[in-house]
């Protein structure tokens, strides 16, 4: 990491710390949901952007995480235990789902995860004795840290921010580790990676399970943020929304999902004046973006950068300029 990047990171973090003080309660809520969805999208980016597996089930893992946290904390289990349990459960379920599913890849995995997501929503809706059915669960407590209540929006924001930074650092470490490099090798050329000794199935499975546990954590934070959950909040549309965050920002770029989540969470706020036409405008923008820039916004930045370097040094190959 260069000094330049480090300075940008520190500045970014400073903005994240100072920004909420300038916002109303609602503004802080929007910022919180951005961070929460960023965590979920980071997890999906590991599965999709680094390991190259299309998953349409991220919302179902958020749901599993949210319901686990809600049920456990409301039954009196301390929140750290509940949140860790949510992550572990999502890891295990991700592993169990991925183990058979990763025999088949690409579009098949997309469909299997799509079906899984629909099944999870059906269960959340139908098992009323546990999940409260369509009425959902109300009154999920927010965590208490060293005697400090996070009931106030600002306090909870910093709780979410701390976890967000923690998860981002963890992800960075994973990507830089030999495992993470194996993920990338797999995405670029599975057969070559395999011939170099990367166990394809174990590696993708791990990426999928870790990505799912990120979803689980995001879900448990979402439950504490809104203090109300129902099956509708974890449907297929939400999975697509998280997928969209990863793609719009730029799959395979570390900051892609964070940027994507910002845009997707803020878009409804900016487009609110359009009322009923909101979804149409949104969909049109997505199509236009895909047509003109299928690698996402960060992909666009990268392309501009490469082009610039090529202009400065016309003798360089694209490969050199891209570095």
């Amino acid at each position: 990491m260069s000094k330049h990047t480090l300075a940008t990171l520190v500045a970014g973090l400073a903005i994240l710390i100072l920004l909420p003080f300038t916002q109303s309660n609602y503004g802080v809520f929007v910022l919180c949901s951005w961070l929460v969805y960023s965590i979920s999208a980071m997890g999906l980016n590991l599965t999709l952007g680094y390991a190259g597996q299309v998953s349409l089930a991220q919302a179902s893992f958020m749901g599993i995480g949210a319901y686990t946290t809600a049920l456990m904390t409301m039954a009196g289990v301390p929140w750290p235990a509940a949140m860790i349990a949510a992550m572990v459960l999502c890891f295990v379920i991700g592993f169990l789902l991925g183990y058979p599913a990763l025999r088949v890849q690409h579009h098949f995995l997309a469909f299997i995860t799509l079906a899984f997501n629909a099944l999870v929503v059906l269960m959340l809706r139908n098992e009323e004795w546990l999940t409260g059915g369509t009425y959902g669960i109300v009154g999920i407590p927010r965590p208490e840290l060293f005697g400090l209540q996070t009931q106030k929006p600002l306090a909870f924001y910093f709780f979410v921010l701390a976890l967000f930074v923690l998860m981002a650092v963890a992800l960075y470490a994973i990507i830089r580790s030999p495992w993470g490099r194996a993920f990338k090798a797999l995405r670029e050329n599975p057969i070559r990676a395999n011939s170099l000794g990367v166990d394809i199935r174990k590696t993708t499975l791990l990426a999928f399970a870790i990505g799912s546990s990120y979803g689980g954590l995001a879900g448990s934070l979402l439950a504490q943020l809104t203090q109300f959950i129902d099956p509708h909040s974890f449907g297929l549309t939400i999975s697509l929304k998280v997928l969209l965050m990863v793609i719009v920002g730029g799959a395979g770029f570390f900051f892609g999902p964070i940027l994507g989540a910002l845009l997707i969470v803020l878009a409804p706020e900016f487009l609110r004046f359009t009322e009923g036409y909101y979804l149409m405008i949104y969909a049109t923008l997505v199509i236009v973006l895909m047509v003109f820039c299928p690698t996402g916004l960060l992909g666009l930045v990268e392309r501009a950068r490469t082009a610039l370097k090529l202009r400065q040094n016309p003798n360089a190959t694209t490969w050199e300029a891209g570095r």
Binding site: L48, V54, A110, Y277, A283, T284, V291
Partner: peptide, 22 residues
């Protein structure tokens, strides 16, 4: 979108579906 693989098409057709429905 064709030269860019399956994923952008998936996203774009999902968006197209929303557009038509809305």
């Amino acid at each position: 979108l064709l030269p860019h693989g399956v994923l952008p098409i998936v996203i774009a057709t999902i968006a197209l579906g929303i557009l038509m429905k809305e």
